[in-house]
Structures are given as C-alpha cells and as structure tokens.
C-alpha cells in the first residue's frame, strides 16, 4: 500500500517511517500539515494513495477537516483513513468518524495495535471493490448500471453522521475500550426492500437508500449518533449521549417525513418507502463480542419488524403494533 501520513510532529512521522519499514512492503509518504497534504495530492505525479493516516489535532486545518476535504474528492471518497489521536476525548473521535474516518489508533503507538489496524485497513482496501458500491452525486453511466446485491452495504456520501459499514464496525469495536454506560444501538429497515430492489435500476436503488438515509439523519438531528447502511434495507445506528430513543415514536416521525418527501423513479413514478424500527439495545455492561452481538440484535429486530409488517398486510388478524 502507498500510505500518506500527515502529522505536525516530525517525531511521529519518523516513527511511522520506521514502523512501515518493518511491517512489510508498504510505502510511506509524509506531510507535516493538512495544507501540505492537499497540495501534494493535487500534484498529478503523486500517484494513487491506498491509505491515509491523519493526526486529529494539528495547527491550522485539523485532521477532521482534512478528512472532510479528502472525502469530497471522487478519487479518495472511500479510501481508508486511519486517524492518529492522542486524545481521550471521544467527541473528537466521533467527529472524525462522522467526517469519514475509517478507524483510529491512539498515541503512544504500540506495534501490535498499529499492525492490526494497518492490516484491517489493508484488507478493507483490497476487499472494497467486492463488498461496497459507491454513490456519487453525479455518477457515470457505467456506475449507474453497476448491479448491487440486496444484502450489500452501500457507502452513502454527503449525509450527516452516515458512515461506511466497515467504519461502523471499527467504531463499535473500539467502543468496548471505553465506558458504554450511555450507549444504545438501534436500527431501521426499509419495508419491502426486496420489491424495491427487484423493480428499480441499480442507480434508482442507490438513490432510494440515499434518500431514506437523509430522512433518517434529518429526523435524528439534535441527537448524537452515527449511522450506517448495512445492506438488506437496514440502517444501523448508535448513540452514546445517554439518549434512549422511543423507537415507535421515531419510526412514526421518520415515516411522516418520508410521506412528505416526494421520491420518484426514473420513469417519474412516485415511490413510497416506509421503514420499520427494531429494538433499542443498550450497550451498558457489554464488552468485546457482545457489543457486536447487540448491534446484530438491533439489526435483526428491525428486519423482523419489517417482515412482520409485510405479513400483517396479508394476514389481517396478526398485526404487530410497532411494525
């Protein structure tokens, strides 16, 4: 991999240089400020960068703003970005993920942790083309026609607090290091997503998912949260602010907003997506893999609610109140 590391401390850049030398066949490029990095990236001779490593706190433009700038470019819209942080304040880490970071490593570094994070990034970079499709505001004809499987996670850009699914997994894995007292995970599933998937073109499907993400994000605004599209019509959310969402009320609010939003397919026919909400699962006193299990519970409960709703349409006598 070709890695671009940006840190205002020359000692950190030297350490990373030594580190990259011993872990394998990577090439490290460095910049000591965000502006230098952007200037270097604007140079056509720099070649492709496979991974970025950004210090969060830098004078001038910080690593969070640099991440936003990088994500705005089509070339690096989904290139892994590993944040380097010495801060224990989670607000910075949350902001970095919301800006588009893929993962983070805390300073001082330890070989084992840094190696494992780089390995995850390397695997993600290699597997990305197979697992994740992209949405751009202006997609090429080729991209529009690219098929996406129903179960595939989709990267959604330019929607506040929506991050890639792999970044969400990394974020949740890192959560187990800190207190989970105020953390809750919950999910929404677009009802009859398989019918939408079957009837819409790939681009229309991308657009539908993206539009629903926007409505969800707008509805959740005012709360601290991160959200990701996990595939199969399901959005997984996590909040750490101590907020305990009322899922039935939230689902109603989302569906009301969806009813007020005019969404059309390419033939001008209006589409009417609605969501079902799963259970809000608290993460308190969970650790390690049980945090991931909680995420899976939230996910599957939303899908079950969506299925129950679909069944209720054909079986009048079995109506689930929430679905």
């Amino acid at each position: 991999m070709r890695i671009l590391a940006v840190d205002d401390d020359p000692i950190i850049l030297e350490l990373l240089g030594q580190f990259v030398e011993i872990i394998g066949t990577h090439e490290l490029l460095t910049a000591d400020s965000a502006l230098d990095a952007l200037e270097a990236l604007a140079d056509p001779d720099i070649g492709h960068i496979d991974c970025f490593m950004f210090d969060i706190q830098m004078p001038g433009m910080d690593g969070i703003d640099l991440t936003k700038r990088i994500r705005e470019t089509a070339r690096y819209s989904d290139t892994p970005i590993l944040m380097l942080t010495a801060m224990s304040d989670k607000r910075y880490i949350d902001a970095a993920f919301a800006a588009g970071a893929s993962d983070y490593v805390t300073k001082p570094f330890e070989i084992a942790e840094l190696t494992s994070r780089i390995k995850i990034v390397e695997n993600a970079a290699q597997g990305k083309q197979q697992r994740t499709k992209k949405i751009f505001a202006a997609k090429s004809v080729a991209d529009q026609s690219k098929h996406v499987e129903l179960f595939e996670p989709i990267s959604i850009y330019d929607v506040d607090n929506v991050i890639e699914y792999t970044a969400m997994e990394n974020y949740v894995a890192q959560l187990s290091r800190s207190a989970l007292f105020g953390s809750t995970t919950f999910a929404f599933t677009i009802r009859e997503i398989d019918a939408f998937h079957a009837s819409l073109s790939a681009f229309e499907f991308y657009s539908l998912v993206s539009d629903v993400a926007e409505v969800l994000s707008d509805t959740l605004i005012g709360h601290q949260f991160l959200m990701s599209y996990a595939g199969n019509g399901t959005f997984v959310c996590i909040t750490e602010s101590g907020w305990r969402p009322d899922m039935a009320a939230l689902m109603d609010a989302v569906n009301f907003e969806l009813s007020q939003t005019e969404l059309f397919d390419n033939h001008g026919t209006r589409v009417h997506p609605r969501v079902s909400a799963g259970n809000a699962v608290r993460l308190i006193w969970k650790h390690g893999s049980s945090v991931m299990d909680a995420l899976a519970d939230a996910h599957s409960s939303a899908e079950a609610a969506s299925l129950a709703h679909t069944k209720s349409l054909t079986n009048f006598w079995q109506v689930d109140q929430r679905a």
Partner: peptide, 10 residues
Amino acid sequence: HQIAGSAGSL
C-alpha cells in the same frame, strides 16, 4: 500535546 503523543512510543 506533541510530546505526549510521541514520548511514550519512545
């Protein structure tokens, strides 16, 4: 902040 970030690694 810079010292805190690198001293421990060294």
